Computed example of a mutant assay.
Amino acid sequence: MTRVRVLLVEDDLRVARVNRDLLERDPDVHVVGSAATLAQADALAQALAPDLILLDVYLPDGSGLGLLRHWRAQGRTTDVALITAADDEASVRTALAQGAFDYLIKPFTGARLAEVIARHRARRTPRGTLDQSHLDRLLGVGGASPEPLPRGIDPHTLERVAQVLEGTGDALSAEEVGDRTHLSRVTAWRYLEHLVRVGRATLDHQYGLTGRPAKLYRARAGEAPAGERHEPED
């Protein structure tokens, strides 16, 4: 699982604590610093070199959009997502034009914040060359908006399972994925089957001496038809 080091830029300490708690529900996300002003944010971004910066717009000493512009002018390419009450179109357009890869308007859900982490991880995953389907996924274009996750599928856990599959070239069983994500075999199976249904994984059957096929899952590139549901092994 890709470890993500986050810098929070938020002048409301209560909101900062809530966001930290939401982020660190994922054991591989670590808030390495928190800033309440532009000056603090700039200093911590240089000192800590975070993987991801979550940036507010309205700060006591100026606009986060100006700081984002400053970072890009310096050549800093750190992933930045705006988390702000600024809901006007001009702010959104400015943030995206300056290279913010996501924009959350307060208030937002924990699931939406988890999507920011998932998108950041997808952007960091080494892929060599990209085909169009991979590029469209990174850009968030090329198709209809994704459907809401089914009940019982947590976005943090889903991305942990997906990252395990995408991080290896081998096909893995539900038990192996469970071991690597600290999930039970049945829970891992449930998430793997969801990945098959939405076209992010494929299912293979491996026949051994017992005659009962083992079910193995592999990350799949590109579009795929929804997989049929399979019952878990005993």
Rank of each mutant, 00 (worst) to 15 (best):
L104C: 06
D136K: 02
P150F: 02
D131A: 14
S173M: 12
D79E: 07
T157A: 03
V141A: 08
V186G: 00
K106S: 15
L158H: 03
D102C: 13
R185S: 13
L216G: 04
V80G: 04
R112T: 07
A201I: 07
S173W: 07
G152N: 13
H205M: 14
K215V: 01
T94L: 10
L68Y: 14
A226T: 14
G140K: 09
D42M: 01
L113S: 11
A122P: 00
A221H: 13
P107G: 15
L82E: 11
W189P: 00
R197T: 05
L13C: 07
A86S: 15
R93L: 08
A81K: 02
L138H: 05
A73Q: 15
G110S: 12
G152I: 15
M1N: 03
E233H: 05
L192N: 05
I153L: 09
T157E: 12
A85F: 15
A97H: 03
L52A: 10
E175T: 10
S145P: 13
V164R: 09
Q40Y: 03
L59W: 12
D51E: 10
R220H: 14
P225C: 04
T168G: 03
L23P: 02
A188S: 10
A219R: 11
V186F: 01
W189L: 04
T202P: 00
R121C: 04
W189M: 05
A118W: 04
S34K: 12
L8N: 08
G66S: 07
L192E: 07
E10N: 09
D88K: 11
V57Y: 09
T78A: 06
Y58L: 15
D26Y: 06
I105Q: 09
E10Q: 09
P50L: 14
R185W: 00
Y103I: 09
R20E: 10
D136C: 14
D51R: 06
H182V: 09
T94Q: 14
V196C: 11
R69W: 00
D12R: 10
V57H: 09
V92I: 10
A81N: 04
R5P: 01
T168A: 05
S184D: 07
L59H: 12
I53T: 10
T94W: 01
N19K: 00
T157W: 02
M1G: 04
Q74Y: 00
P60H: 15
T202Y: 00
V164N: 02
D170L: 12
D11C: 02
L135H: 08
L59I: 07
S145D: 10
S91Q: 10
G208E: 11
R218L: 13
V177E: 03
L113F: 05
R197Q: 13
I117D: 06
L113P: 02
L44V: 04
E159Y: 06
T2S: 11
A226H: 15
Q74H: 04
T125N: 12
P232V: 14
R212G: 03
D56F: 08
L104A: 06
D12Y: 06
W189C: 08
L82M: 15
D87W: 10
A41C: 12
L48K: 06
D11N: 05
Q163E: 03
L96M: 09
A95G: 08
G143V: 15
D136A: 13
L48V: 01
T187Y: 00
